[in-house]
């Protein structure tokens, strides 16, 4: 397990926003796991072709093969794509849930209200044990090196009341060779030309299911059968979403008849949106119920605490 320094930590705007939202709405401090990937940063020389036509100079794109493992010039960038939050003190480094598909456990976060924005004793110890478990180390994309879950994100709010509510956060890399936290800059990634360099490091975390296509293969019969079964299962899942809209119809979107079929496709999108909306409403209603129940529980808890206190 190498202890390579990370250049910076990137997090997508929506992920950070939902992390802060999760912290803001939770009754107490929370802990959680951060998922994503670490890749080698390739400086991109490509840029948007903003000039209308004339300049058609071919830009020199550097083709990158597998880079050397321990070159001193490599810049690592960690991208946080998702997180899982739990109430504080309930994360056990030996019993971690498996990371979501095509991402690795990068590290963890701790969010505690109204406290100094410095790693605490507990946070230090937890990062230390997380990065010292060899079973948790993961490969760096397009490189042969690996890294342990060393990212730590600390969230807090100011100790003193302020008119404007501020969320504070700071990111660190735990360096197990030095036994210390190394502060790192966080880059919040959004969509737009300013974030072009990240497109190169993009890796989708919900890949599109493979579609059946006829190809004369030389596969063995058994393998072919398994493959067919798998594809059939995926096809039924996809059909569920498509609501009878067949892929073949997509081909009709091209050419003269396109106008007739685009209406059908819009209809499909409309139905999907309605579905999502109902789902969102259900979530909203159930979380309102959960919130009410939590409030009730809290009142009972305080009452109980006062009762035992007065004994």
């Amino acid at each position: 397990m190498d202890d390579l320094p990370i250049e910076k930590i990137a997090i997508s705007g929506p992920t950070l926003a939902s992390l802060i939202q999760r912290f803001y709405t939770s009754p107490g401090p929370i802990d959680g796991l951060l998922y994503g990937h670490v890749s080698l940063l390739t400086p991109s020389t490509l840029s948007d072709d903003t000039s209308s036509s004339s300049s058609s100079l071919p830009s020199t794109s550097t083709s990158t093969s597998l880079p050397p493992i321990s070159s001193s010039s490599q810049t690592l960038i960690a991208t946080i794509t998702s997180f899982l939050s739990l109430s504080a003190g309930h994360v056990n480094p030996l019993l971690l849930p498996p990371p979501p598909p095509s991402s690795s456990l990068l590290g963890w976060f701790s969010a505690r209200r109204r406290s100094p924005l410095r790693p605490s004793l507990r946070e230090f110890s937890f990062s230390h044990s997380l990065s010292s478990l060899p079973s948790l180390s993961f490969p760096i994309l397009s490189s042969r090196s690996s890294l342990s879950p060393c990212i730590f994100l600390l969230l807090s709010s100011p100790i003193h009341d302020q008119t404007i509510h501020t969320h504070e956060y700071r990111a660190y890399q735990f360096r197990s060779s030095l036994l210390s936290f190394d502060p790192k800059s966080i880059e919040v990634i959004n969509i737009g030309p300013a974030f072009r360099s990240h497109y190169g490091a993009f890796s989708p975390n919900s890949p599109f299911p493979s579609l059946p296509c006829d190809h004369s293969s030389s596969m063995a019969v058994d393998e072919k059968k398994e493959e067919e079964e798998r594809l059939r299962a995926e096809q039924t899942q996809l059909d569920d979403c498509a609501e009878g809209f067949q892929v073949k119809r997509l081909s009709k979107l091209m050419g003269n008849e396109a106008a007739n079929y685009s209406a059908g496709l819009e209809d499909l999108y409309g139905k999907m949106l309605v579905k999502i909306e109902t789902l969102a409403r259900q979530v909203e209603q159930s979380s309102a119920l959960v919130f009410e129940q939590e409030n009730h529980n809290r009142k009972l808890k305080y009452k109980a605490a006062r009762f035992t206190g007065s004994e």
Binding site: P29, G89, R112, P116, S120, R122, E123, F124, L179, S180
Partner: peptide, 24 residues
């Protein structure tokens, strides 16, 4: 730092900013 939601749990300690190497 204790947790008012669970006062029975262990507290956490944050040391002075000038003593950051004390944790190591």
């Amino acid at each position: 730092i204790y947790n008012s939601e669970s006062p029975i749990s262990a507290p956490d300690v944050i040391f002075g900013a000038e003593d950051e190497n004390f944790l190591s």
